[in-house]
Design a protein around this nucleic acid. Structure first.
Lengths: 262, 262
DNA sequence: TAGTGGTCTAGACCACTTC
DNA sequence: AAGTGGTCTAGACCACTAA
């Protein structure tokens, strides 16, 4: 026998999934359910808190509890890095994402700030630098309408970007073609990438920034970008609301027995 | 000003991270903290519940609340599918994972059951079959010691596996070399894969199976495996405890302007 | 039997929003 | 001022574990 608050939460979740409570619609007020005999205020509140942690509703004082918009997952694939997009056209990866997902791009949905900082152990290791070396950090917060979706911070070695648009940024996503175009123009053509992902609980700051419910998770993405000679020209860390993204990777099955002939 | 339960949870989390409460060690009992003036029983309990949702501790009735073992992330990369491992040797992918993570493999850490089922919409779409077609499902639950880490269910088309070891399984991971070896021996050499990942709340069944705390998340992995001629020979769905895994993907930056010459 | 965490209640009070 | 969700208390009782 589940606890009472769990039963109530399941009952409400069921109705939400069946569409009886539509997205944007108000759930019954806590005091109404108390009156209706669903339990004490604490019990009903526990059920609502569970629904919020599960991402189904959002509560706010003074307003009430409303069913959340269940935005479809945004799908990110390798194709978003296609050279043709940023080298020959003027797209940048994050705009390609929108197009692929059938979303429109609006100006002002990406904020950016560039600063010169000391490399953290993670950043230093990725770039093969001593800890504490100075690097350029380009931090973006990407929104979709009013909804922030993820942060992305790129770290560059000073000798690769000094004097480029990246360190003296005009508004918008690093100008025409984005960061990879800038590196390309500076003589560093990207060739290979490594993406590493894992999920964890959002920190309080991240939860506030990405408008996450308490207990929601984020996916942390580490992207290391190499030129053909193996130089790391960009290391980026992204924090994504875990419930809003999916990643897809296509690859050939490796065969180490044939490595020499490839 | 955070609520009292949040302050208490943060204080305890801090001490856990600093090592004052070591993994496996008991946290103070709820009633002790009530006595110590940290708040009422409900307040202290709320703090403990938050710590549990954040994966830091596990509570159980009759025992107490102990600090969780923070197992390092298991890292999964493309290399675990290396043909040399299962074609020329007799390793299977999941053993390669253990070796890469410095863990030992013990027999009996993987359970398996094979059945003939009607394809769900997801499975049918992956195989390009009409919904409800019959497929073989090979379901595994992978453990590490006593700790289950993930489930993995592979779906095969009957004409690809009928009469092979897969559908008449001997104990262990589909026998020597695993499922890919069986397909290889049957004339279907795998060539290309697509992995898709996303995170979501664990269902109650998954939480029980994988021994997850309430509110923990899982990563669902969809793996589609193709032969060189584009035939889908395996579609697999994995459910991983989100806090226990990391994924890494290496790839060349695509260039659609050169597709013809590749 | 004694001790643990978990649930539930009734009610007071707080923080915030809207009218 | 009235109505919303959020916090907190004191205490009763339940479920489970151990000796």
């Amino acid at each position: 026998m589940s606890p009472k608050w769990r039963e109530l939460a399941d009952k409400l979740a069921e109705r939400i999934k069946r569409g009886e409570y539509a997205p944007g619609q108000q759930l019954p007020h806590i005091r109404d359910l108390v009156e209706a005999g669903e339990g004490s205020k604490s019990t009903v509140h526990a059920a609502y808190k569970a629904l919020e942690a599960e991402g189904l509703v959002t509560s706010s004082r003074g307003h009430g509890t409303v069913v959340r918009q269940q935005a479809p997952l945004k799908r990110l694939g390798i194709a978003r890095y296609d050279k043709a997009k940023w080298r020959d056209g003027d797209e940048v990866a994050f705009i390609a994402d929108r197009v692929a997902s059938g979303r429109a791009y609006k100006r002002g949905e990406q904020t950016q700030s560039v600063s010169r900082v000391q490399a953290s152990p993670l950043v230093a290791a990725a770039h093969g630098l001593p800890e504490g070396s100075e690097v350029y950090a380009r931090a973006r917060l990407v929104k979709e309408g009013d909804q922030p979706t993820h942060t992305l911070t790129s770290y560059y070695r000073p000798e690769h970007v000094e004097g480029t648009r990246i360190v003296d940024p005009t508004p918008g996503p690093a100008g025409k073609g984005g960061g990879f175009r800038v590196l390309y123009d500076a003589g560093y053509e990207i060739d290979r990438m490594r993406e590493e992902l894992f999920a964890r609980i959002a920190s309080p700051e991240e939860a506030a920034l990405l408008q996450l419910a308490h207990g929601e998770w984020v996916v942390e993405l580490h992207r290391t970008t190499y030129t053909a000679d193996g130089t790391v020209v960009e290391f980026a860390v992204g924090i994504h609301a875990a419930s809003r993204f999916a990643w897809a990777y296509d690859f050939k099955v490796p065969d180490s027995a044939q490595e020499a002939s490839q």
